[in-house]
C-alpha cells in the first residue's frame, strides 16, 4: 500500500463516525443557503466608481502605500520621472508589457527585464521593481498580481521599492471580485504564483512596534492610470 493510500485509509476510517454540520442561522427550513454570500459579510464597499476609488485611496493611506492617480501615458511617465529623481534611482528592474515598454526607455536609466533572466543578485541591486498587475482591490487596498502579469516572482518583492501600475478599469471593488477575475483570466492554467500585496513589507515582531521594510520593499507605490478622454 502506498503512503497516500495509507493516510487516505486512516482518514476514511476516522470519518466513519459522522458528525452534524454546524447549524447555520441564515438557512431556510430545508437547509438551503438563503442567498448570503461572502460579499455581504466582508467590509462594505461603495458601488459607484468614484466611491471605489476613494475607498482604495483611503486604504492606501492607512497602509502607508504611496498612491497616485494619473491621466494618460505622458503623465504616468512624468510621475515616474519625479520618483526617479526624488528617490535617486540608478537601476530599474521591470518586465515586458505594452505600457512599460513605452515608458521605461524615457526614464533614461539602465533597466533589467525579467524576460532576459537577470541574475538574482542583479535584481537585488536594483533600486526599484516596476510591474503591472492583474487588479487592484478597493476593499483592502491590495494589488493582485501573478508570476505572469508582473514579470515573475522576484520583481515585486526583491528591490527595496515596488511600483505597481494599473489601469483604472483594473480597480475591483472587493476580494470576491478578485477571485472571480482570477478564475476568468486563468481558468485551468494558473500561473505558479498569485499574490495579494497589501501595503509595503512590515513587521511587528519587536514589541509589536510597526517597522516597514522587514524583508520586502520598504516603499510601495501604486499608480492608477486613467485613460485620457
Amino acid at each position: 500500500m502506498s503512503r497516500r493510500d495509507e493516510i487516505l485509509g486512516r482518514i476514511r476510517e476516522g470519518l466513519r463516525l459522522r458528525v452534524h454540520e454546524p447549524k447555520r442561522a441564515a438557512t431556510s427550513s430545508d437547509g438551503v443557503r438563503t442567498g448570503l454570500t461572502t460579499r455581504e459579510w466582508l467590509p462594505a464597499v461603495p458601488n459607484d466608481p468614484e466611491g471605489i476609488v476613494e475607498t482604495f485611496a483611503r486604504n492606501c493611506v492607512e497602509l502607508r502605500t504611496q498612491y497616485y492617480r494619473v491621466t494618460g501615458l505622458p503623465e504616468l511617465s512624468g510621475k515616474l520621472f519625479e520618483l526617479k529623481d526624488s528617490e535617486g534611482w540608478k537601476l530599474i528592474a521591470s518586465h515586458r508589457d505594452p505600457i512599460l515598454d513605452s515608458i521605461l526607455p524615457s526614464l533614461g536609466l539602465p533597466f533589467l527585464l525579467a524576460e532576459d533572466r537577470p541574475a538574482t543578485a542583479d535584481v537585488e541591486r536594483a533600486d526599484v521593481g516596476i510591474t503591472r498587475c492583474d487588479a487592484l482591490i478597493a476593499q483592502t487596498g491590495s494589488i493582485l498580481l501573478t508570476a505572469r502579469s508582473a514579470g515573475g516572482r522576484a520583481l515585486s518583492v526583491l528591490p527595496p521599492h515596488h511600483v505597481a501600475i494599473a489601469r483604472e478599469s483594473q480597480l475591483l471593488p472587493d476580494l470576491p471580485a478578485a477571485f472571480e477575475l482570477l478564475n476568468k483570466t486563468y481558468g485551468d492554467a494558473y500561473p505558479s504564483l498569485i499574490t495579494l500585496i497589501t501595503g509595503p513589507s512590515r513587521t511587528g515582531d519587536i514589541e509589536r512596534i510597526l517597522v516597514l521594510g522587514a524583508h520586502g520593499p520598504r516603499t510601495l507605490t501604486i499608480i492608477l492610470l486613467r485613460d485620457p478622454r
Binding site: A114, A147, G152, S192, L196, I197, T198, G216
Partner: peptide, 28 residues
Amino acid sequence: GTGQQLTCYNSMIGGPRQPGETDGPEEF
C-alpha cells in the same frame, strides 16, 4: 490574527516555475 484587514502578502503557489515564467523554483 494580527488585527489587519489583510496581511501584507498572501501568496498562492500552485507549482514550480511554469513554462513561460521568468523565475521561481525549478522544483516544488
